[in-house]
Amino acid sequence: MITLNVNGKNYNVDVTPDTPLLWTLRDNMGMTGTKYGCGISECGACTVHVNGQAKRSCVTPAGSVVGAQITTIEGLSADSSHPVQKAWIELDVPQCGYCQSGMIMATAALLARKPKPTDADIDKTITNICRCGTYQRIRAAIHLAAKNTKS
């Protein structure tokens, strides 16, 4: 049994410490917004925030984030009002939508660190995979969210 702080609340979870955070969130805590894509930290569909940093939860042992502040897509905002979510809605970014939780979490972490990212910053930081190929809109939405974020 370990205790995890997710989206501001403490949860006691019955998993072994080496269980990936991804599966702990999904199977033990019922938070399915964080997605499984590859399991080897390649695709970023499982991206969450750990103490504000983007982290790929498929290779993060649950035991390694005890005591940390974990934020998932469900906790990014209560009502989809985060500037990144609003930009995503305004530009209708998603197609199938499966990768978008991870894209949004990666972007939110980038903007928290770098409020006005350049295209080069985006290229370097947003390394998640979208098979539908929504990249052009993701880039535009990142710039839109940056523009709409009060610094």
């Binding site: 964080t34 989809s80 939508g97 949004i104």
Partner: peptide, 12 residues
């Protein structure tokens, strides 16, 4: 479907 795909609520 977009609003459901920006907050993790869309059920795949």
């Amino acid at each position: 479907d977009t609003p459901l795909k920006v907050n993790g609520s869309a059920v795949f």
